[in-house]
Every structure is written in structure tokens, then in C-alpha cells.
Write a protein that binds this DNA or RNA. Structure first.
Lengths: 249, 249
DNA sequence: TCGCTAATCAGTCAAAATCATTCAAACAAT
DNA sequence: ATTGTTTGAATGATTTTGACTGATTAGCGA
């Protein structure tokens, strides 16, 4: 039996029952314990299952999705560094807003350090992970965008108008001196704007590749936000820091 | 049996009856008293149960907590059958509400058969899976309950008052001729009530074990809902069908 | 209330099972 | 042939297990 077949069979077994014993794998696939262990190791690294003593257990959908979205994106280390710097700006007891997006998602695991936070978000994945970490979480209501699992629409925008945030953290796909902060989706842009309007202080998380780029819909001008970024060339840094606050990791 | 499996089973047993004896654990899982004790110790440290002389007792919302993390393996087939019958009651184009709970979660995968549904829910897990299936989904706003990933609180209740549902599907932990429909958590009960009030027609999903049981907070009387269930004894069926509509799988 | 008994408990220990790691053999592809 | 990959066996380390110990507890009858 081929290695891939074996691994597929392990996943199949996990799908039907919740756990598999190592012995069962050996028996089913007719291989040695060593090979079975290797497969389990591999599949765990891929985030497809969780190894336990004596075998493995299945992950839940949301769990799997979370570390998929975490790993599949590029610039993982850059995002992570940006996220850490962003979290460092937060004080205990504050009320913050987290935009739905992968960079803000990276912030979540570091939020555990903080005490008595209240986090408002429009990201379903964000909310789920925040809940797992025992953080007081408020989810905005409204239509769910199926692709990104972000809550959008007029309901979401109106909900946001009832809150006031100490700090707001947004992702942006384009950062440009003339066209400001931009993002591809009009509905998500509206949510970002609404959060922006309720913020005492706004931080935009954007790695170096987003600079000088323009996306479809404008969120706001540069001046009103602090941009947290990384890997910026000297020239670009100088150019933009004349217009706005830039924090580089 | 693997250690984790054993611990899972202990929690399952606790969820259905309120207490377990050490002996029962040994018998059910076919392990020594030492191992059973170790498991209880571990689970108590995790805060999942309270140890008592001779065994352990459940914490209050263990049932729902277990359910919602998807870890419960109890009554899977019964839940699935109930879910299918419930979905069969839905027509294309309708607007429905799904309560946060395992049985309603089981409905989600069958909803794909229907055309142009709009689904409103207060369950984050439900919403996520609905989005995966490309179903138009609206998530209620409000506080996230960390253990069950259900959205609760006054915000959620008020949100619901703006909608009107063709059909509402609720889970309940207790179905009793005198005390009506009951559930353990007051906040979730409030959400259920709010959904109830906006429904043209309400269905309560409850397997046979919930009958004659009373939980902490009352949701409503029996008369106003149709109860979808399974595995009911003749006597119980007759008794309750005098008071309300009962659909048995 | 008091003591008594039987059951249950926490802690220790050695045996058994499982684990990570290494290594050589088998195999496939150039 | 040679290189790289996969496999299964072997190793010692780690974890889990069940039995055993004396201490603690609940229940009961006086």
C-alpha cells in the first residue's frame, strides 16, 4: 500500500469514528508501527489530526480551519511580528475591535496575555478562537460572507455604531499616499469604516508588500491611522512617515 | 481503550446522568480503579467535573458544553434522524431560525437540499458550517458564551425581535407536562424565548431521554410548539400527545 | 454523640505499552 | 551503478497501567 493511500485511510477512519488506535492502523493498512507513526506525525504537522497516546483523534471543523488559514497564508512570520507589535499597544481593561482578516487573526493568540479585555469583532473565526481562550467577546450581528466568514452588511455597520472602542485594528490590502487605505470588498470596507468612526485610536496592519498598492474600495485617508508594518525600504518609510504614523517591527 | 477515549466517556456518562460511580467507570471502560481515579483527578483539574466520594458529579452546564464542542458521542444516530425529519418540514425560500445546540447543528448538513433558504442563528459553529455550504446566513449579534459558542445576552434578544421566522428550531433539555420546556442556561433560555416569539411555527428537537425531565430555566409551555423526537415509549407518547403535537421519527 | 466497619482514597512501584530515534535493507528513479 | 526515498526492525526513553500500601471517609448501630 502506498503512503498516500495509507494516510487517506487514516483520515477516513478518523472521519467515521472519532479516534483511531495505532494498532488499528497497522491492521487495516498492513504496515509496521513505524510507518503508521510516521503518517500520524505527518498528518499532525499538516494540522489534519491531533496525536494522542496510543493513536490519534479527529479535529473539529473550526479548529482545522483556524490553523489552515493561519498557515496557508504567506508572510507568516511578518504577520506574526506585526501582530505581536499590535498587541503590545493594547492595555489591560480596554475595549478593542478586531477586523476580520488573517493578520488580525494572528493577534488573537497573543491577546491572552492581557487582562479583562473586551474584544468586538466581525470575524467568525476570530470570535471562535477568542472564546476558546476565554476572552470576553462580542460578535457583531449581520449577514455572513461565505468566503471569508466575515460579518458584513448594514446590520453590522449599524451595530458598530453603538460601540466605542479604545483601539481598532484593521487589515488593508492597499496603502497609498494618494489613494489612502483600500480593500477589495465594498461590504467589508463599509464595516471597516464604521469601526474606524468609533475608534479613539486606529491601527492598520499591513506588511511591506501592501505599500504603494491600491485596491478597489477606499476605507480612509492615511492621516487618521497608525500603520503597523514590517520590511519597509528606507525610501518608502520616509515617504509615508511624512503623512502618517508608521510603526515598523 | 485509549486514555482520552476513557475520559471522554466519563464526561458522556456525566452528561446524561448527573453522577457516576467509580465502579461504573471501571465497568464501562474496562479499566482498573487506579486509572479511573487518575482520569477523574485530571478532569477535575481541568475543571470539567467535581469529584465526590465514590465517583464524580457533573458541573451545571456540562451537558451543553460537551455537546457544543462536538465531543459528545451520545445519541448520534437519534439526533441525526430527528434532524432529518426537522429539515423535511422546511420549504424552499423560507426564513428559519436555528438555535445553538447539537441537534440543530446536525440539521445543517441536510439544509443543502433546500433552495434559497435564509437561516438566522445564534450559534457560531452553525453559522460557520452554513457558510461553508454556501447558504445565506445571518448571525445574531451579542456576547459570545465561551463554553458553548452561542451568542447570548440582551443584544442578541433585541436583534431577534427585528426578524420574523417561518419556522424556528430549538433544542431543549427538559420536556415535562407540568413544567414545560426547560434548559440549563438562563441566558440561552432568553434567546430561545425571543426566537419563539417571532415564529410562525416552532419545532422543538428533543430525543427520548429529555422527556419527563426538568432542567433549570423554563422556555415555554408545551402547547405552542411541535416536538420532534424519537424512541418514545407508548405511554409517554400518549401522555404528551394530549397536550401538544408530537412527531416521532 | 460515639465508635466501628467497610468502602474509598492518595501515593508508590514495577510491569507493560507506547514513544522518538537511529539504522540498514528494500525499492524506485535517474 | 548511484542517488534518494520509503520501509521495518531495534534501541533506549517515556508514558500509562494495575496492584499494593496505609490513610481517610461515609454509613451504621449503639
Amino acid at each position: 500500500m502506498l503512503a498516500e493511500q495509507r494516510q487517506q485511510q487514516i483520515l477516513d477512519m478518523l472521519a467515521s469514528r472519532q479516534v483511531v488506535k495505532l494498532k488499528d492502523i497497522c491492521q487495516q493498512t498492513n504496515c509496521s508501527a513505524s510507518s503508521a507513526r510516521r503518517d500520524l506525525q505527518l498528518l499532525e504537522d499538516q494540522g489534519a489530526l491531533v496525536r494522542i497516546h496510543g493513536g490519534a483523534k479527529a479535529k473539529h471543523d473550526l479548529q482545522r480551519e483556524l490553523d489552515m488559514t493561519g498557515k496557508s497564508t504567506q508572510n507568516v512570520s511578518a504577520k506574526d511580528k506585526i501582530a505581536q507589535l499590535a498587541v503590545a499597544k493594547i492595555a489591560d481593561q480596554e475595549v478593542i475591535f478586531l477586523d476580520a482578516g488573517t493578520t488580525t487573526l494572528a493577534m488573537v493568540r497573543y491577546l491572552q496575555q492581557k487582562q479583562h479585555l473586551t474584544v468586538v469583532t466581525n470575524g467568525v473565526l476570530h470570535a471562535s478562537q477568542l472564546a476558546d481562550q476565554g476572552i470576553r467577546t462580542i460578535l457583531v450581528g449581520g449577514m455572513l460572507k461565505n468566503t471569508t466568514k466575515a460579518i458584513v452588511g448594514t446590520k453590522a455597520v449599524r451595530d458598530l455604531q453603538h460601540y466605542r472602542f479604545n483601539k481598532v485594528f484593521l487589515g488593508a490590502n492597499g496603502v497609498h499616499d494618494e489613494y489612502g487605505l483600500t480593500t477589495p470588498d465594498p461590504e467589508e470596507a463599509a464595516v471597516k469604516q464604521a469601526a474606524f468612526a468609533q475608534a479613539e485610536e486606529t491601527f492598520v496592519l499591513a506588511d511591506g508588500s501592501k505599500f504603494e498598492a491600491v485596491s478597489f474600495v477606499k476605507i480612509s485617508d492615511l492621516e487618521q491611522a497608525t500603520i503597523i508594518t514590517t520590511d519597509l525600504s528606507r525610501a518608502v518609510f520616509d515617504k509615508y512617515s511624512r503623512q502618517t504614523n508608521i510603526l515598523e517591527v
